[in-house]
């Protein structure tokens, strides 16, 4: 669908649906480089977090400062002590300990549940136990460590799922659409990047990302997220995370080649009986027009903290503007009418 506001937008001229070349759509001339992206194949991820570290190092991303337990930043969520993507976390490795009854680990759908939940609220780590005994580290974890490592036994199997999450560099990026300053822009590589010297910290991009990626950093007030190593791309290098990944779980390249590789990998896994394998963000028909960074997952997206069916919010924007304009006209008419109705003028 073509947007009626083409003439003014200076950003993407189409608001939703498949879009073969978002770079040209954003106003770059035809001879720009090919669109690049990430294919993150979670079936070979070993959860080493080299990507998280490499990203922090290369991009000089500061400490994210999140620390619920007050104890070495432990979350109690398996081996994920990062939590989620944010202004100072541009790669995030999710850990899921998928517990299921013994013997159900066959192909097809794997019943899965998260580790046992509920229980005691987190204690203040700084407080010593009232009886003066030693500090039980597990008990200090949120929820008494109930999210902690699960072990297989006679009755149940444990499957580990690990996935390195990142900004999706959407074809239709909600963050970019709503940015009022033009700080967010589409690069010649088809990626989505914040220009820190333009961003005024209005925060509009934050709730507009359907994946919860971008955030405002409290220390400097600016919005930050993965740049797909824009600086490295310019120098012909691959992004730091892909470079550091020891298993090639993170693959960088031209998007069309990655898509072909992903399709082949999916077919291979299905051929081997791994029927739960699926691609996420690969479909150019989805609600964001497909992702520049897409994934091969081994369970439903929501298990990894991803929305199952994201839609770019601006898809509905023309209708919203229409509604607001009509209501504005109605409000104006109502106020004018208030001066002429009721017959009780100038009592």
């Amino acid at each position: 669908m073509t947007n009626v506001f083409d003439a003014f937008s200076g950003a993407a001229t189409s608001l939703s649906g498949p879009l073969p070349d978002p770079t040209t759509d954003a106003g770059w001339s035809g001879d720009h480089p090919k669109r690049v992206g990430f294919f993150t194949d979670t079936s070979v991820c070993i959860g080493c977090k080299a990507c998280e570290v490499a990203c922090k190092e290369w991009n000089l991303v500061p400490d994210d400062g999140t620390d619920a337990s007050g104890l070495y930043g432990l979350t109690g969520m398996s081996y994920d002590n990062t939590g989620d993507l944010g202004a100072s976390t541009w790669r995030h490795v999710a850990f899921i300990e998928d517990v299921r009854p013994h013997g159900t680990a066959t192909t097809g759908h794997l019943p899965s549940g998260l580790p046992a939940l509920g229980g005691t609220p987190p204690r203040d780590a700084a407080t010593a136990p009232p009886d003066g005994g030693t500090v039980d580290l597990l008990a200090l974890l949120p929820d008494g460590g109930a999210h902690g490592q699960q072990t297989p036994d006679d009755e149940r199997d444990v499957r580990w799922l690990m996935s390195s999450d990142v900004c999706k560099h959407c074809t239709h990026a909600g963050c970019l659409d709503v940015c009022p300053t033009g700080a967010l822009f589409r690069t010649e590589y088809g990626t989505v990047v914040v220009q820190d010297d333009i961003c005024n910290g209005c925060g509009y991009c934050v709730p507009s990302c359907p994946y919860g990626v971008i955030d405002v950093r409290e220390s400097d007030g600016g919005a930050h997220k993965c740049t797909l190593c824009y600086d490295r791309l310019g120098a012909g290098l691959e992004p730091a995370c892909a470079k550091a990944c020891p298993t090639n779980s993170i693959q960088f390249g031209d998007l069309d080649e990655l898509q072909a590789a992903a399709d082949a990998r999916l077919a291979e896994l299905h051929g081997r009986g791994v029927e739960e394998a699926r691609l996420y963000g690969r479909d150019p028909d989805d609600g964001v027009g497909g992702d520049g960074a897409f994934f091969l997952l081994l369970d439903e997206p929501e298990v990894y903290g991803l929305p199952p069916d994201p839609i770019v919010t601006t898809r509905d924007l023309p209708e919203m503007w229409r509604n607001a304009a009509l209501t504005a006209a109605g409000l104006g008419a109502a106020i004018v009418a208030a001066f002429f109705t009721g017959g009780g003028r100038r009592k």
Partner: peptide, 9 residues
Amino acid sequence: SYYGRPIIK
């Protein structure tokens, strides 16, 4: 969900 955490910001 992923440990009951919010999905969007």
